[in-house]
Write a protein that binds this DNA or RNA. Structure first.
Lengths: 185, 185
DNA sequence: GTCTATAAAGTGATAGAC
DNA sequence: GTCTATCACTTTATAGAC
């Protein structure tokens, strides 16, 4: 999987970063090619269906990577509330330079492509499920865990949006502070 | 203000709806012209600086409208927690058909235009201030009110994002349920 | 598998008649 | 104030040489 010519991987890597940062419509295929260093001919060789296929693979990729990030992040501390709070703080300080989020892609693609919209939805759901699992392991009722996990994910996404609008990084810390209160119910 | 030829108003109205729904890059000037029913020539007559100026005015417009919506929505009930919860529920059932949000514009424009990014930021801040005022009137400490208002706004925005990704409308209700818990601190 | 040239359509923007 | 024609540019996508 890692040894297949790597050109595909370079394209996918550049695409996933550019799509997250600038959005679907704002990033052209030319830009992806330029940033990735790959030749334009090979883009359509590796992604015959063009931009939409590339975006789909990019979304799936970041979905998986972030899911793993959340999972390993939460595994460091046993107590759910503490681990989630610490993970969000970690996220906040990690984000400092560049602002990424799939919110942008989700909002953009909901109008133009069912496929991409569903991919974004599934990304969100997989992250929610990861939070929910941690809560269930910590003794939360299953249904309550799923609701709270959804609220956590939506807070993170909302905080990232407001952070990019403000060009700052503190909003996620505010969210982190609310986690214990939220989970005390 | 309402009597100045109305062409400008029609363009602005179409633009603000299309920008919110599809985003900045996805909506072309041609589409705005077509939807508004105005002639293309008059677009550059009313907005000499072109697309960016049009978007700026559109953002300012929806910022003011939504701010007023929040204000009148919150004024119906005296208790802050109850009024905010009821307003979010109202919002949820109002949103059913189309999904609008300035999150999309905020995320898109942060990369390409300081002016537009700031306009989105100020929109968020004015809404936050409106929630905060209600909380302060309800007896909350000023600083705590501002923090909680920010959390409320970020939850609403996050819920709208997840809602559009899921093509549903229930996520905002989940947020509404959390309001009393959040405000009990 | 890679690279180039180019097609076809769309974009924002402008000029100038009316 | 309105409308049309058009410019210059960029977009995705394809064809075909290598």
């Amino acid at each position: 999987m890692t040894l297949k010519s790597d050109t595909r991987g370079k394209i996918l890597d550049a695409a996933s970063r550019l799509f997250q940062k600038q959005g679907y419509h704002a990033t052209g295929l030319n830009e992806i090619i330029k940033v990735s260093g790959a030749p334009k001919g090979s883009l359509y060789y590796h992604f015959p269906a063009g931009k939409e296929e590339l975006a789909l693979e990019a979304i799936k990729l970041v979905s998986k990577i972030i899911q793993q990030n959340i999972e390993t992040g939460l595994s460091k501390i046993e107590d759910p509330a503490q681990s989630i709070q610490s993970f969000i703080k970690e996220l906040a300080s990690h984000i400092q330079c560049d602002h990424f989020s799939v919110s942008l892609l989700a909002l953009e693609t909901s109008c133009i492509s069912e496929t991409l919209r569903e991919a974004c939805d599934q990304a969100f759901e997989s992250w929610i499920a990861t939070y929910a699992n941690k809560l269930i392991q910590g003794g939360f009722d299953k249904e309550k865990a799923q609701t709270l996990a959804r609220v956590i994910q939506l807070m993170v996404e909302g905080a990232l949006t407001i952070s990019t609008a403000k060009k700052e990084t503190t909003t996620l810390f505010i969210v982190a502070e609310q986690i214990p209160i939220l989970l005390k119910q």
